[in-house]
Amino acid sequence: MTYIVNDNCIACKYTDCVEVCPVDCFYEGENMLVIHPDECIDCGVCEPECPADAIRPDTEPDMEKWVEFNRKYSEQWPVIVTKKDPLPEAEERDGETGKLDKYFSEAPGEGG
């Protein structure tokens, strides 16, 4: 098992999860985070830290696409280990559906 970040993170990018991760497997895009599935040790400490409920175990239904999504972008984006402020529109976008098609950016974040 591994954990993944899904589209609930897009346009929110809460980073509470990165500080509790013992293996630094989070990577930062311009408007979301991803988890490298090969680096995640399945400890689960990040899942309850996410206010947007964007971190899910890959054992849930239909998670295969998110495992590959997380793998792809974790290999392109910089690692993030330090908590940052969420995006300005985070509260407004939290819980919104269809964010992958509406807001997702492939651009990397700053990392750090």
Rank of each mutant, 00 (worst) to 15 (best):
T2M: 09
T2L: 07
T2K: 14
Y3P: 01
I4D: 02
I4P: 00
V5G: 03
N6C: 04
N6R: 05
D7H: 13
N8W: 07
C9P: 01
C9L: 03
C9N: 10
A11M: 14
C12F: 06
C12P: 02
C12V: 15
K13V: 04
K13R: 15
K13F: 01
T15D: 05
D16W: 05
D16Q: 09
D16E: 12
C17M: 11
C17I: 08
V18W: 02
E19T: 15
V20F: 06
V20M: 02
V20N: 01
V20G: 01
C21E: 01
P22L: 08
P22A: 06
P22H: 07
D24Q: 13
D24G: 12
C25I: 01
F26Y: 11
F26N: 04
Y27C: 07
E28Q: 15
E28L: 07
E30C: 09
E30T: 06
E30N: 11
N31S: 09
N31Y: 03
V34I: 10
H36Y: 11
I41W: 11
I41Q: 13
D42F: 11
D42R: 01
D42W: 12
V45A: 14
V45N: 14
V45D: 13
V45S: 13
V45M: 14
P48I: 04
P48M: 13
P48V: 06
E49A: 14
E49L: 12
E49V: 06
E49P: 06
C50M: 02
P51A: 08
P51V: 08
A52N: 03
A54V: 04
R56C: 05
R56I: 07
P57T: 09
P57N: 09
D58C: 10
T59W: 13
T59V: 03
T59K: 12
T59R: 11
E60G: 01
E60F: 11
P61D: 00
P61H: 06
D62K: 15
K65L: 10
W66Q: 03
V67N: 10
E68R: 13
E68I: 00
R71G: 00
K72L: 10
K72C: 00
K72I: 00
S74G: 09
S74F: 04
E75D: 12
Q76A: 14
Q76V: 00
W77D: 00
K83C: 00
D85C: 12
D85V: 12
P86V: 13
L87N: 06
P88K: 02
P88E: 10
P88N: 06
E89N: 10
E92S: 07
E92Y: 10
E92M: 10
R93C: 05
R93Y: 05
D94Y: 05
G95W: 08
G95Y: 08
G95R: 08
T97N: 12
T97F: 15
G98P: 11
G98D: 12
K99V: 02
L100Q: 12
D101Q: 15
D101L: 14
D101S: 14
K102N: 11
Y103P: 05
F104T: 05
F104R: 11
E106I: 02
E106T: 01
A107F: 09
A107K: 15
P108Q: 08
E110K: 14
G112M: 05
G112I: 04
G112P: 04
G112S: 09
